[in-house]
């Protein structure tokens, strides 16, 4: 008998009373008078920078103003003309090491916790994590109230990977002192587009 059959057989013999699934539709998920305002507030508390793009603004110029010393900029987004590395065409994920700024697109933002849904959008998703600084372009009309709404809306593409990102990477593993910039991005800047 293989292990799967053994495990499932033992479970079926041992399980006692069975419980029904609760009705999750009855959850009164938190909502906000203006989810965008809540989203902007929460990104401040998680240490992200946030700018609202106005008509006529050039995103390329604004990114360079945020990161004036950036030399290597990685993005597969066509509107990011300042990109000099393309995660879609690099030979290997390793080639994106040393990226000063990575620019990616998020599809949805969550007001309650600042999460942004970033489905994989190019061959090497490592751009989301390996870049020293991460720039996320987020449609301002995409903000939902809470995770219940978010999980009903998010979509996967054929890459079959997606991640919620809420700011820069962080840790408090040394003596519980909060340090921003652990193994992934050391800063996060959001542009509402």
């Amino acid at each position: 008998m293989d292990s799967k059959e053994y495990i499932l057989g033992r479970f079926r013999r041992n399980v006692g009373k069975k419980y029904d699934m609760p009705d999750l539709g009855s959850i009164a998920g938190i909502t906000y008078p203006d989810p965008l305002v809540q989203f902007i507030n929460i990104t401040q508390t998680n240490g992200s920078n946030l700018f609202e793009l106005k008509p006529g603004d050039d995103i390329n110029k604004l990114i360079m103003e945020c990161y004036p010393d950036a030399k290597t900029i990685a993005s597969s987004l066509p509107e990011i003309r300042i990109a000099n590395r393309n995660p879609e065409t690099v030979a290997s994920a390793r080639d994106l090491d040393g990226t000063d700024v990575g620019v990616v697109r998020a599809e949805l933002g969550v007001a309650e916790n600042g999460c942004m849904w970033v489905p994989q959008q190019c061959k090497e998703k490592v751009v989301d994590f390996i870049s020293e600084n991460l720039v996320i372009l987020l449609p301002r009309d995409s903000i939902v109230n809470n995770m219940h709404e978010a999980y009903r809306k998010i979509k996967f593409n054929s890459y079959n990977f997606g991640t919620f990102i809420a700011g820069a990477s962080k840790t408090a593993d040394i003596a519980q002192v909060l340090v921003v910039g652990a193994q992934a991005a050391r800063s996060c800047t959001i542009f509402l587009v």
Binding site: I42, N46, V110, E112, N113, G114, C115, F129, F156, N160, F161, G162, T163, F164, I165, A166, G167, A168, S169, K170, A184
Partner: peptide, 12 residues
């Protein structure tokens, strides 16, 4: 925290 920084969904 209201969320972890990363919540990654791996399908393949």
């Amino acid at each position: 925290q209201p969320t972890t920084v990363y919540t990654s969904h791996f399908r393949t």
